[in-house]
Amino acid sequence: MRAPRPFRRELIATWGFVARNIHLTKRYWGWELVWFVYSLTSSLAVAYIGLGTERLSGPGVDGNYLTLYLLVGTLVWSYLSQIFYVISEMVAWERWEGTIEYTFMAPSSRLTHLVGTSLFAVVYGVARTLLILAAAALFFDLNLVGADLGAATLWLFVGSISFTGFGILAAVMPLLFPERGVQMTNVVAALLLLISGVYYPVEVLPGWLQFLARVSPATYVIRGMRGAILEGRGLGDAARPLVLLFLGGLAMIVFGTWAFSLAERYAKRTGRLKRSG
């Protein structure tokens, strides 16, 4: 059989990664349901803190505002962390399945592998978050009249790019450390949750944590989303941070891909891709 043209082959391979993950999602539907219920209930529980605070502290607190504030944080976090996990665990997942050597032996490029996985992560994350949002709308009286949804969408898009970069960078860990790698990526995700102001303004954190908050892309995405949804801040105000976040995200993807290829070489030199057999 004749070899397909290189570009066409990479396109088909990209779809191969996406389709494979769709198949996996279907076959593991029980777990999908569990995670969905888990994300939904934890988002709802966090959002109810808004109404609860009003009840506890009296009318000085705007419970609806606080609820929306928390809901934006928890939904954006659930979306971004989803992207992060899907990408950063792609190596660990295939090692567990036992397919890693098969995938790494294929003639398609590693960039295709990363792009295909990221593409799935974004599409899957959007679908899941919209579902959670729709469900949450049944529980709360969400008032989005003043929101700038266009700006919010753009923030989410640019945030996806920077978290893709972050995920690729984190995916290096499981390549270098077959056992500890996934543990490390989980610690990274936990740290991001603490420092990025998901449930509170970062200004309440101690100084050194605020410093860390500045290097987390999630800080900017969540702040930008709140500006767009709670205060109706349009693109005019957000242009500069959006461009910076976008460029930072691209730089991280390029750097992450490069680091990944170095780590792949290291793994193949030391026999860490797969140990037994």
Binding site: I12, A13, G16, R20, L24, R27, G98, E101, S108
Partner: peptide, 20 residues
């Protein structure tokens, strides 16, 4: 070296696409 929950067909489709 297979995705254990995927069917033979799904596994082969994935493999084939990796080769274009």
């Amino acid at each position: 070296a297979f995705f254990k929950k995927l069917s033979p067909m799904e596994n082969l489709l994935y493999g084939a696409r990796l080769y274009g």
